[in-house]
Design a protein around this nucleic acid. Structure first.
Lengths: 202, 202
DNA sequence: TTGAGAAACAAACACTGTTCAGTTATAGTC
DNA sequence: GACTATAACTGAACAGTGTTTGTTTCTCAA
């Protein structure tokens, strides 16, 4: 066909990402293919490679946007002063975010780069940013604790919440519906805070 | 070529599973292909389909064996009477199991059946069995608690441990090595037990 | 000895990611 | 207005994929 120029490079980039995200949201990662994206946006497969290095590049871009969105959600949560409530609020926001679009969220854990390649620096930075938000939420419950303790504590909480959401969206935690995942989160955060209080005052 | 009969159907079944498991252990799920299995066992791809329905069937079989192995590991753990120590022991056994062969263990969470299909009943049964073992370990720390509370509590612990192992093998918990995953497990179990003690005696 | 059926294969189908030579429409120059 | 350089895009090709099917060959029982 040759030059068309109905989209600028930036627009095309966006169109590709949107189509890809839609495919994943609807049918999961395994349904994503260069030809399927091309079909949807009515370009040839080759065009994708003018703009992205490869499919992994497209997928990583989508993952990055999701991390940003999650970060936004966490930052714009209504203000809650009680430290315990704050932690609870964060955990539930994470759960809601993951349940709002399980297929898309699963992307973060299903997708792996080829052996030997690891995620780009900007990706790690986004992850660290999120972890920072959790640390900030946890810190008030850990007065006088060392930086290290706070970091470890935040990770334990994060990993715990992740474990519940992960197993529940994968449906690998026998008979757990979306509701009861929320209950488990409450239990976890409850125990976690009680544990903190106990070991901290001891 | 035609009939060869160097292997019985059962032997062939085993050879296929062994080769598949080896591929996954060495190169991950994405490296598994019918042709690669066939190459290794020196049969044609078509032969796999005389014995298994499809690749998913092969993969599910391997998953089932892993769940059995984990169950064995947990059952044959040295006897520990202190309830807290018992929970700790279980958590570390789970971590060790998953870290001993991360690629294989990841299979349980990376692999998804096609949309609409869910895991066979025997698979669910194995999961329930594992959960039962966790419940049994947790129960002594929860005297007089309802069945329901024990179930929920066991799941929270299980999911928490899973979250840590999951994020650490995926290397998505910034700077977490195998060692520090163990530390996080200790933290989690410690907080968990402290939390139980606090809320239970309250 | 022969026929039936089991065991295995090879080829085919429709797909996949990726590359790249070739084509075309446009923007800019004269 | 004509012309060219080049950006934009395509489509075919390559080597792979899962799975199905028809065919061949071998074994074993009658």
């Amino acid at each position: 066909m040759g030059r068309r120029s109905v989209h600028t490079a930036d627009q095309l980039r966006e169109v590709i990402i949107d189509a890809s995200r839609a495919i994943i949201a609807e049918q999961g990662l395994q349904a994503l293919s260069a030809r399927e994206i091309a079909r949807r946006i009515e370009y040839s497969p080759g065009t994708l490679y003018n703009i992205f290095q490869n499919l992994d590049d497209i997928i990583l871009t989508i993952e990055g946007q999701m991390l940003d969105r999650l970060s936004d959600v966490l930052t714009t949560l209504p203000v809650v002063t009680d430290p315990g409530q704050r932690v609870r609020q964060l955990a539930h926001a994470y759960l809601k975010f993951s349940h709002d679009n399980p297929k898309l969220w699963n992307l973060l854990f299903e997708h792996h780069l080829p052996a030997g390649q690891d995620v780009p620096a900007w990706y790690r930075a986004k992850l660290n940013g999120l972890m920072g938000q959790v640390e900030a939420a946890v810190a008030p419950s850990l007065e006088n604790a060392s930086e290290d303790t706070i970091r470890r504590s935040a990770r334990v909480l994060w990993a715990g919440v992740h474990g519940i959401t992960s197993l529940s969206t994968a449906d690998k935690l026998s008979n757990v519906t979306s509701d009861t995942a929320g209950q488990l989160i409450d239990d976890l955060v409850g125990l976690y805070l009680a544990g903190l209080a106990a070991t901290h005052s001891a």
